[in-house]
Every structure is written in C-alpha cells, then in structure tokens.
Design a protein around this nucleic acid. Structure first.
Length: 277
DNA sequence: GCGACAG
DNA sequence: ATCTTGTCGC
C-alpha cells in the first residue's frame, strides 16, 4: 500500500483510522429523533408539589479517566449521590453523599473525535448502567449527569443525549469547556456574563446566531469566573437541568460528576498499580 | 485556505 | 483526556 491512502481535509485527518464518520453522523441523526427535550420524568408524578426538587433523590454522575502512559486504557465510573443525605465538606458546607459507585476498566479502541465523543465513551458508560441496574436496582439514578454536552453539539446530539436515549434515562449535559456551535464562542459568552444586564446573574442563556437556545453558561462556584456549560440531554427541560445542577454544586463541577471524576482516576491508579498485568 | 474542535 | 509545583486566597 503506497500513496493510495486518500488525502482528505478537516475532520477526516484526525479520524484517519476511521472512515466511520459518515456512519456516525447517520447514527446521531437517527437517534436524535428520539430525544425528548422537556420534562418527562416519572419520579415527580403524583405529588402536588410541582418542580423538580420534590421527589428527586438519586442523581448519578458518569465520567471516564485515562491512564497517563497508555491513553487507550480507560476507567469509567458511575456514582450516585443522595440529595437527601448530606456530607460535610468544609466549615458549614455540605454536599450530597455518595451512596453507590461502579467502575469498569477497559481498553478503548475508538479515538476521540470532536463531535463524536459518544462513540468513544458511551459503550463503557452504558455497561456501568446495566451493571448497576442488575446489582443495585433500588439505588439506580433518577437523573444522570454526564461529563459532556447534551444538545449543545454541532448536530444537537452530544454524549448526554446519546446516553439518555439509549438508556432511556433523564440526562443533563455538563461541559467544562465550550464546544463552539452556531456562532457561540467563549469571548461572546464572557461578554454576556459581564454585561451589565447580567452582572448580578450567575447564569446566562446561550442563544446562537440562529436564535436557537443551546443551553446555559453557569458560574456555579461563587468565586470562579470560569463557567460550566449546561445543556439538556434527554427528558428534561433546560430549566429543570439548571435547578438540578444548582442542587449539586458545592464546587464548580456538580458533585456527582466531580465524584465520578475523582474516583475513576483513583480507581485506575489503584487497579493499574496493584495489578500491572 | 484558515480556524475551531465536548472528553 | 493527560503532562505538572507552587502558590495566591478565603
């Protein structure tokens, strides 16, 4: 095989080993038809309270960490916190307590390609959900917070949507960095947050050039200027996503995801160091 | 052609 | 994502 390798441009270069992107886009377009943007949760039915806080208790968080030496070794973590059970994390600060955690260490073969994160990370995360549904069904999360975007995505179908649809679970997308979409840029978001009209707010709605609302930029921690980016994953309204995120934020990153991040990294170190194989 | 690009 | 120490601040 010599010069027959097709020379392409843009996204394709990064994905040289995979000519799958065409397929992936079809997959996303197909699955997107099943996304539900709007409140559609069964755990709040039957009470006159209204709102999301009344009967929400178990909130899950997922994240994937990678080995520093071998980036193909991944550790996925699913943690569940109980909003009604607080643990101390400072003088007068408290955070929802972790009541369950599941891990899976595996070798990932699919590379990360911007816009296609789900094809790399969704499989290991779906396995964790299945594992938990079997091992601890009574603690299975009512809502899942995902380390990655929901509809804030070039095709409106990020990892959080992908997981939500395939697991049929209400999900919330949390981005720690902005994925530029529809003219939305970090500088633009900064301006919005600095704008006199929003200066007292901790949250700004992300409206793109098209007029579409993609999510919200939120400065969750009191002092940090760097926002997180909240977007609908599945079966929730943006308003509910925001209020749930607020219930979980003692730090910049909401507790379920923060714990999944911390613990997946720790688990990977322990597993690798103890069992070098 | 150039820049941008979640984790 | 990961590589990385100290350091400024509440």
């Amino acid at each position: 095989m010599d010069a027959l390798t097709p020379t392409s441009s843009g996204e394709r270069d990064r994905a040289a080993p995979l000519s799958y992107q065409h397929t992936w886009i079809k997959q996303q377009d197909l699955l997107r038809e099943r996304v539900i943007v709007g409140d559609d949760f069964c755990w709040a039915s039957g009470d006159g309270e209204g709102g999301v806080g009344s009967s929400l208790r178990y909130v899950g968080g997922v994240d994937v960490s990678f080995a520093k030496d071998d980036p193909s070794i991944a550790c996925g973590a699913l943690v569940v916190v109980d909003l009604q059970q607080r643990t101390q994390c400072g003088e007068s600060e408290s955070a929802p307590g972790v009541i369950h955690e599941v891990y899976d260490v595996a070798r990932l073969t699919v590379p990360y390609v911007p816009g296609f994160l789900a094809f790399r990370e969704a499989p290991i995360l779906l396995r964790l959900l299945e594992k938990m549904k079997h091992d601890a069904p009574s603690l299975y999360p009512q809502v899942l917070m995902v380390d990655g975007n929901g509809v804030l995505h070039p095709r409106g179908f990020g990892l959080a949507c992908h997981l939500g649809v395939l697991a049929n679970l209400p999900t919330i997308g949390i981005g720690k960095n902005l994925h530029h979409v529809d003219g939305l840029t970090l500088s633009r978001v900064r301006k919005l947050l600095q704008d006199p009209a929003n200066i007292s707010k901790d949250l700004v709605t992300l409206m793109g050039d098209s007029g579409r609302i993609w999510g919200a930029a939120m400065r969750s921690s009191s002092g940090s200027s760097k926002p997180i980016f909240v977007s609908v994953g599945h079966r929730l309204s943006l308003e509910s996503c925001i209020s749930i995120v607020r219930m979980c934020c003692k730090h910049r990153v909401p507790e379920p995801i923060r714990q999944a991040d911390i613990r997946s990294r720790r688990h990977l170190l322990n597993t690798q160091g103890t069992t070098p194989e």
